[in-house]
C-alpha cells in the first residue's frame, strides 16, 4: 500500500515536471531548414540582406554569421552549437572537408587544389609547429590537445 502511494506520488511529480517543462518551451517556429534563396558563389554576407535584423527569435545575430575571414578563423563554437544555421546551406559532411578525427590528411594537403580556402598548416608544418608551439602551445590544444592522432604520437607520447 505504501509502495503504491509512493509510486503514485512519484508519477504525479514526474507528470508535473513534464507539464511544466512543456509549458516552458517556446512556441516560435524553428529556424528554416533550408535557406529560402540560393546563394551565389563566394562568401555570403548575411547582413547584406538582413541588415535590419540584428537579432531574430531564432539565431543570435545575422552579423555573427557573415563569412568574413574572422568568422572562418573562429567559426568552431558557433558551427557546433548552432549547426541548424549552418545546415540551412551546408550539408553536414561539408565540415569534414577539414575536420576529420586523427587528422589523416592535413587540411592544407587535402585541399592543395584550393589555395583560396583558408586551411591551417600550410607549408612545412613539421618545422613550423615547433616554433608556434613554443610561442603559444594553447593554440595547438584547441584542436589537438585531446585528439591524440598518429602524427602527434610519433614524437609526443
Amino acid at each position: 500500500m505504501a509502495r503504491q502511494k509512493i509510486a503514485l506520488a512519484l508519477a504525479g511529480v514526474l507528470a508535473l515536471i513534464f507539464a511544466t517543462a512543456c509549458m516552458l518551451v517556446s512556441t516560435e517556429t524553428s529556424f528554416t531548414a533550408i535557406h529560402p534563396m540560393e546563394l551565389g558563389a563566394g562568401r555570403p554576407d548575411c547582413t547584406g540582406c538582413h541588415a535590419d535584423e540584428p537579432m531574430t527569435n531564432h539565431v543570435r545575430s545575422y552579423a555573427e554569421f557573415n563569412h568574413t575571414t574572422d568568422f572562418i578563423n573562429a567559426h568552431g563554437p558557433k558551427a557546433v552549437q548552432y549547426n541548424n544555421v549552418c545546415a540551412s546551406c551546408h550539408p553536414v559532411s561539408f565540415c569534414a572537408d577539414c575536420h576529420t578525427d586523427k587528422t589523416v590528411l592535413k587540411p592544407a594537403l587535402k585541399q592543395g587544389n584550393r589555395p583560396d580556402v583558408i586551411s591551417p598548416h600550410g607549408g612545412d608544418y613539421i618545422t613550423m609547429h615547433r616554433i608556434e608551439g613554443k610561442i603559444d602551445p594553447t593554440a595547438c590544444y584547441k584542436c589537438h590537445g585531446r585528439a591524440n592522432n598518429d602524427r602527434c604520437r610519433a614524437c609526443h607520447r
Binding site: 517556446s26 512556441t27 516560435e28 517556429t29 524553428s30 531564432h58 541548424n84 553536414v92 575536420h99 578525427d101
Partner: peptide, 13 residues
C-alpha cells in the same frame, strides 16, 4: 568520425 541520427522539431529550434 561521426555517425548519428538527428531529429529537428518544427518549433523552438
Amino acid at each position: 568520425t561521426y555517425g548519428y541520427a538527428r531529429y529537428r522539431f518544427d518549433r523552438a529550434n
